[in-house]
Simulated scan of single mutants.
Amino acid sequence: MTEKGVGAFVKTLDYVLEQLVALLNIPSPSGNTEKVIQYVESEFQRLGISYTLNHKGGLIATIAGQQAVPQRMLTAHVDTLGAMVKEIHPNGTLRLTNIGGFRWHSVEGEYCWIETSQGNVFTGTILTRQPSVHVYREMEKLPRTEENMIVRLDEITKSAADTRALGIEVGDFVSFDPRVQVTDSGFIKSRHLDDKASVAILLGVMKDIVEQGKALPYTTHFLISNNEEIGYGGNSNIPREVKEYLAVDMGAIGDGQATDEYCVSICAKDSSGPYHKAFRQRLVELAKEAGLYYKVDIYPYYGSDASAALRAGYDIVHGLIGPGIDASHSHERTHTQALENTFKLIQAYLHSR
């Protein structure tokens, strides 16, 4: 990436990072996303972008293009992994049930927030039921399963009755502290970059469209979905005029993967099967023409809002791109270069015919 290219993106990157940090610091596990949706809604209003709210609580923004048919739709999800109170133990600690596909070892030792049905928030720490090496000789052998994980509340509570007196009950939502950091070297470290990084990028794209005043060739919808982590965020409210549906979600990194923390990752196949061949090839050509750093990859244990839309029966051409993100569903990290490459590929796509 050239120095000139980085410099030209600085102002937009500042906005994307500002939005990303704000989004990351709003708890929004699937099923409890009203606050973060309200935040995005207020940003749409500030930018002067028309939108609607669907019955599931997601947002659909629309920018009119030179042609009303066919139409395009892009989606990114604002819901995250999280948990829910499953049980209150006799000693006042909590047992959790997970929301979304994470493994319990990835949240061991994490600070968390418990939100009651009355809207009160309490803090705690997620631990195993044998956390002390000075007491439990073989603590490392304890399986990290739902049954063996607890929340230690930061309140004086010695019984289930004490905990219930705080207003905490079964069914209360639990969010993980994202611990957001943006480093001088350009890395963004946080939980829930999946998929708030993509939501921030889409906000940057929409802001750029509004400010540049250059009409898109086709009317385009932007769906901010709020149930992707549990499988049905973007599988509804797709106008019948939509032909191409592009999910913007993280690119997974690991052994055998081509994706890294600096690229825009273009998905060829995930657990749902291949993405549309011609659409994927066109995205690759657009990336090449724009001189972007990209990788084509396969995500073996992954599904997106685009694949959910196909399973729902929509007759669409579907694709998936996104910034490369390390340690997905754990302590995630990406780089500003990945944000830039993803932003510019979306920009190139939206202005292409």
Rank of each mutant, 00 (worst) to 15 (best):
K288I: 07
Q118R: 14
F279N: 00
L23W: 02
S352D: 07
H329F: 04
G57A: 10
I346G: 04
T145K: 07
E34D: 09
E110C: 04
V133K: 15
L47D: 03
N227Q: 11
G231Q: 09
Q19E: 12
T75M: 09
T219L: 03
A348T: 01
L59A: 06
G324H: 02
D315C: 13
S307I: 03
T334K: 05
N237F: 15
R137I: 13
T183F: 08
G7H: 13
S328G: 10
G48R: 06
Y39M: 05
A327C: 08
L350Q: 05
V151K: 02
Y349T: 06
V135L: 09
K86Q: 04
S117N: 09
N341T: 03
V135R: 12
Y302E: 06
Q71S: 10
S50A: 15
P27G: 08
R144Q: 10
G322E: 03
S236P: 13
L17F: 08
E211P: 08
Q19F: 13
I26N: 05
T2F: 13
H77M: 05
N120D: 09
V242P: 01
E108S: 01
S185F: 07
I266C: 05
A76M: 08
I26Y: 05
L283H: 02
L283G: 03
F44E: 00
T116F: 14
F9N: 13
A309Q: 05
K288F: 05
H77I: 12
D195R: 03
Q71R: 05
L20V: 06
Q347K: 14
E289C: 02
I325C: 12
L53N: 08
E147D: 05
A306D: 07
T128V: 10
D162V: 02
N54F: 08
F187M: 13
L246F: 03
R164Q: 14
I298S: 09
W104I: 06
C267P: 01
E110V: 14
L24S: 12
E229N: 15
D79P: 06
R333L: 14
S265K: 06
E43K: 04
L339N: 06
N237P: 15
K56E: 09
A161G: 11
Y301D: 11
K11Q: 15
S190H: 09
L127F: 05
E169G: 11
N237K: 15
K295E: 11
L94Y: 02
L53T: 02
E18W: 07
Y299C: 04
W104A: 02
S225I: 04
V284E: 08
V242R: 00
P143K: 03
A308G: 03
A278S: 10
Y294H: 09
A200S: 14
A252Y: 09
D260E: 11
R152H: 11
E43A: 04
K277H: 15
G5Y: 01
E229F: 15
R152M: 07
Y314F: 13
T163P: 14
T62D: 04
G233Y: 01
S50Q: 10
K11H: 14
K86I: 00
G233D: 00
K269E: 15
L223E: 01
K158R: 15
H276K: 00
L59F: 05
D194Q: 13
K277N: 07
K141P: 14
